[in-house]
Amino acid sequence: MAKPLRKSGLFSAEVDEQTLIYDATNNRTHCLNPQALKVWQLCNGLHSRDDMVLALRTAGHDVATQPGDAEDLVDAALGRFTELEMLETGTLMTRRDFGKAALKGLAAGLVLSVMMPTRAMAASGLTCEDYKDPITCVGFGCSWMDGSCETPSTGPLCSDLEEEQCNAATDCIWVGVCI
């Protein structure tokens, strides 16, 4: 793997100890926890994966107090950055690089991610079943149950309504279909 480099043109903002990063190329917003942020800051094209592990250990970060911790953290974070296309092409981790850390279940909690919805999506153009990760699922008001996203049983979506019902519903509008 080449030395990881952050994709250019990302917008970032801090909220408490977490960092939000918006990627306009795929309309996703990511939320990095403080551990992921430490790895992210080292993704400047100057550090290899081993350099990062060493840097975390040398700096004595609380995230890397055990011998294997820094290694797992770096692998998990880089894997997640790769999965979410946050790194420049050519510096991406292979699935094999990422596998070990991912299996330990570290990656998902480091970086949460959600797609910036279109107006139509926000107005329920998609169904709950279309969302494949718990954050997006719950964020859209659906229920995450046993690894899949389900529609809450409180009523129909706009897209379920016929013209008359659609026009009567305050949140829906009929444009040939109900949205």
Binding site: A13, Y22, N27, L32, M116, G139
Partner: peptide, 23 residues
């Protein structure tokens, strides 16, 4: 706080047009 922002963003209407402002 960070996750709450993500949840709000997932419910935004103008997030696509004004992502930085919405964040």
């Amino acid at each position: 706080k960070g996750e709450t922002v993500l949840r709000l963003i997932a419910n935004s209407m103008n997030g696509r047009h004004q992502p930085e402002t919405v964040i």
